[in-house]
Design a protein around this nucleic acid. Structure first.
Length: 570
RNA sequence: GGCGCGGUAGCUCAGUUGGUUAGAGCGAUCGACUCAUAAUCGAUAGGUCGGGAGUUCAAGUCUCCCCCACGCCA
């Protein structure tokens, strides 16, 4: 039995994510996790919310709440939505957890021991009124480049020029509005990534089977300009993991926290500890420590392309640099962006569909199917309502849903709500079983390779094969002259339903479960032996004709939803 | 401006290390069937593979230039 550690990039805490975020990491990770579990493998599937940093503080301030309270609430909101989409995390952790704090400080201590952290003195703006430094967006002023009066400390929104807070003319605090500011020297820690450049390059080069998207982004960062740069890992903020060297204080770094990108990936490990501490598991180290049982673990990370640099470079530096036997990622599956109807999804303008809104419109399976079967694997892809409508109506309602409907209703009207008696399978039946055997093996290969779209395509072909078979043998005609033969035909067709349900479960878990319930089947094991599974239902096995498995999306709904989500609000 | 990923049938996309008449699904047209969620099944039509030049016996697939879209960075 293989062991799979699977993580999805952790979504940021400030607000509800849109469908592009979902399909970029959490959803394909879930597909893979469900598939591996389905094959009987041992899986630990982890995710969390990324809670530290300036945007969280600002969002909390805007909501008029203490940041801890805001994060706790938003974590619950995101957890609930994840559940709504049936994301089957073994644990959905929080980067603000005690476990992550301890572990982050531990890694920092080890990196310092190994001389991979250096201290840098910088000049930053200090606000007397607020009693704190004002990084990034905490300060605004007049842009020295274009004269725009509300330029942020890190960038001017008008002319897009990158700025340093000390560049601003007439600067003021965005917290208090105070202009009582001064430049003050402050000290920060930098991770010496440049030291590891050779090791990283060698490691990346050895991953010839990774998606080009992953390796090309990593190589770009390794080789562009002067090569991989050291990065600051601390900030003058209150909200974050306090800077410490393991359990020791870090002289000169009092009142500072680690920068969010440093502690966020460490949460992958901490989440496993949280999983144990929540009594959901018993041993996290056998997943994460190669000296304690994790050497036979296959670790796969899923993420959008914007996260690739952190996972191919920064986090590996943390792991390598610790000098400790932590489990390193084996495969990084990265995704391009999903666009919305000719443009980008926009959180700030409310353009596109967000996860909570999606679930208000239709059940999770409808979204899961469309998103996965159109996953932006090789290039950016595009969501349009027409495309969504035609995929759902054709694939789910017509090909799969209607198949179940025609078979069960035919059986009920000509025989009963039970598997009818008949002789043995004939030539056509064996031909179908052969076809489905080879298609199932192809499907398994694509799923193993994480070829999401191809998997969906093969699954659809498996569904369609049932309709082709029925059309060929035409039990409605056979029944008039040879009811026994019709019984055989419909017996096979009935057997296809639980077979489809098990194969389809990673994509559409709810529909899968309800089909199995209708067919009165409890065996959810993977059909290693397709032929055996297709004669599993015994004569006389009772079932009930299911309700409509998938409904169709109407033209009126498409029109309405197009307007609703066009993004003119705010 | 630099870098990156793309530009393949009306639409969404596949096309392994260059090799016979470029593929799938949807849509369109025609036909079959009538068990079913006006569902299904079959057939047909549709592309000078962004443009140009080059390498080669042979290029969607390699090289160079250009155009377009998107993204990242300056």
């Amino acid at each position: 039995m293989a062991r799979h550690l699977i993580t999805s990039a952790i979504p940021y805490i400030n607000g509800i994510k849109h469908l592009g975020n979902l399909v970029g990491s959490q959803l394909p990770a879930d597909l893979f996790a469900r598939y591996q579990r389905g094959r009987g493998n041992e899986v630990l599937f982890l995710c969390a919310t990324d809670e530290h940093g300036t945007p969280a503080e600002l969002a909390a301030a805007k909501a008029g709440k203490p940041v801890e309270e805001y994060c706790a609430e938003m974590h619950e909101v995101q957890a609930k939505i994840a559940e709504g989409f049936r994301l089957s995390f073994d644990h959905f952790g929080r980067s603000s957890s005690e476990q992550n704090q301890v572990l982050t400080q531990h890694f920092a201590g080890k990196l310092a021991e190994n001389d991979l952290i250096r201290e840098v003195s910088e000049t930053q703006i200090y606000s007397h009124a607020d009693g704190r430094f004002l990084p990034d967006r905490y300060i605004e002023g007049t842009c020295p480049n274009c004269g725009f009066e509300s330029a942020r400390g890190d960038q001017c929104d008008n002319c897009t020029k990158q700025l340093d807070p000390t560049d601003l003319i007439n600067p003021y605090s965005t917290i208090s509005g105070s202009t009582d500011l001064e430049e003050r020297a402050t000290k920060h820690l930098y991770l010496r990534q440049s030291e590891m450049r050779g090791k990283l390059a060698e490691w990346i080069d050895s991953k010839s089977d990774w998606p080009v998207l992953t390796t090309s982004i990593a190589k770009k960062w390794l080789n562009d300009g002067d090569g991989l740069q050291d990065r600051g890992i601390t900030r003058d903020l209150d909200w974050g993991v306090p800077v410490k060297k393991g359990e020791q204080d870090w002289p000169g770094m009092e009142g500072k926290v680690f920068y969010v990108w440093f502690d966020a990936p460490i949460e992958y490990i901490a989440s496993a500890q949280e999983w144990v501490d929540a009594d959901k598991g018993t041993d996290w180290e056998r997943w994460w420590r190669t000296d304690k049982g994790a050497d036979d673990v296959t670790y796969t990370q899923f993420m959008g392309k914007d996260n690739v640099p952190f996972h191919t470079l920064s986090f590996p530096v943390t792991i390598f640099g610790s000098g400790e036997p932590w489990k390193l990622v084996d495969y990084i599956k990265s995704f391009n962006y999903l666009n919305y109807d000719g443009g980008q999804f926009s959180t700030s303008r409310g353009r596109g569909v967000f996860m909570d809104q999606a679930l208000d419109l239709l059940p999770a399976d409808y979204w899961r199917w469309w998103l996965l079967s159109h996953a932006p694997e090789s290039s950016d892809s595009e969501f349009t309502w027409e495309n969504f409508q035609s995929s759902v109506n054709k694939d789910l309602a017509d090909v799969l849903g209607n198949f179940v409907s025609r078979v069960t209703k035919f059986c009920r009207s000509k025989f009963s709500e039970a598997v009818p008696e008949g002789a043995e399978y004939g030539e056509e039946e064996l031909a179908l079983i052969n076809e489905l055997t080879s298609r199932t093996r192809a499907y398994e290969q694509h799923m193993q390779d994480m070829e999401v779209r191809k998997s969906a395509q093969e699954l659809r072909a498996i569904w369609a094969a049932g309709n082709e078979y029925l059309q060929t043998v035409a039990p409605w005609s056979t029944f008039k002259t040879d009811p026994d033969k019709a019984a055989i035909q419909i017996r096979l067709a009935l057997n296809l339903i639980p077979f489809y349900a098990v194969l389809s479960a990673p994509f559409i878990p709810d529909a899968s479960a309800s089909l199995l319930a209708s067919m009165n089947v409890t065996d959810t094991s993977w059909p290693e032996d397709v032929a055996a599974r297709l004669s599993a239902l015994q004569v006389g096995h009772e079932f009930t004709v299911p309700e409509v498995t998938f409904r169709k999306i109407t033209d009126d709904e498409v029109t309405e939803w197009q307007e609703t989500f066009a993004g003119t609000r705010d």
